[in-house]
């Protein structure tokens, strides 16, 4: 998968390839598939980028509690990836919020926000975020200079 790149647009950018079969009978990417793209970006942020910055504990037990998405422009399959720009908008005690935009050079296709809860999978309940996790998530909320 493409590594995340930090750009002036957003703290986390993921280049997400589309699949032809993401399109439905209307010839546009089906509304369900956008959530798959956001999932890929979230996995890249938490399982690829975070460990590179020394935080490996965000790679498991992250549960999506809430996800809101607005569909702004239809997206058709093309070989070029879309860009998923993400940033952390809130760091709570055991949860954090993300904001995502699905964009390319031409258009803004969707905007989404989500709440992710850190879970202790063995105990079966939420757990507090660690100091290292909070620090990295806070960094991912800031525009890089």
């Amino acid at each position: 998968m493409n590594p995340a790149t930090v750009t002036v647009e957003a703290p986390h950018v993921f280049h997400c390839p589309l699949r032809w079969s993401d399109m439905d009978t209307a010839g546009h990417v089906h509304n369900v598939q956008h959530l798959r793209y956001l999932e890929e970006a979230r996995i890249d942020m938490l399982c690829v980028l975070a460990p590179k910055h020394g935080v490996s504990t965000l790679a498991a037990g992250m549960v999506v509690a809430q996800l809101d998405i607005e569909y702004l422009r239809p997206l058709a399959y093309r070989p070029d990836p879309v860009r998923i720009e993400s940033r952390v908008t809130r760091v709570g005690n055991s949860s954090f919020d993300l904001a995502h935009d699905i964009v390319d050079g031409e258009a803004h296709y969707a905007h989404a926000t989500s709440t992710i809860v850190a879970f202790d999978v063995t105990a079966g309940r939420s757990r507090p975020l660690t100091g290292d996790e909070r620090a990295l998530l806070t960094e991912l909320g800031e525009q890089p200079t």
Binding site: V64, A65, L67, D68, E70
Partner: peptide, 10 residues
Amino acid sequence: VVVAKHAISY
């Protein structure tokens, strides 16, 4: 119909 938005609670 076109979906304008979803708000999903898990």
